[in-house]
């Protein structure tokens, strides 16, 4: 797993209080990992902070799964 993926996974585990095994490529933050809409806003903020990037609101809306997050951040960072 890439360095980006490891760091994203750590944030997801910490913020959503889920087990690491559940954070898979296609795991949806809302449908599979128990996040609500406010949790996803906070997750995106945590990604911005961790990677020193800015994720615009329209891009954030398309980050639905762990895989989406890793892909977006890998391309942006």
């Amino acid at each position: 797993m890439s360095d980006v993926a490891e760091r994203v996974k750590k944030i997801v585990v910490e913020h959503l209080g889920v087990e690491e095994e559940k954070v898979t490529e296609n795991a949806s933050f809302i449908d599979d990992l128990g996040a609500d809409s406010l949790d996803t806003v906070e997750l995106v903020m945590a990604f911005e902070e961790e990677f020193g990037i800015e994720i615009p609101d329209d891009a954030a809306e398309n980050i639905q799964t762990f895989g989406d997050a890793v892909k977006f951040i890998s391309e942006a960072a």
Partner: peptide, 10 residues
């Protein structure tokens, strides 16, 4: 302001 948490108000 972008760093203000969505959980701040509630």
């Amino acid at each position: 302001p972008r760093r203000v948490s969505p959980f701040f108000v509630p």
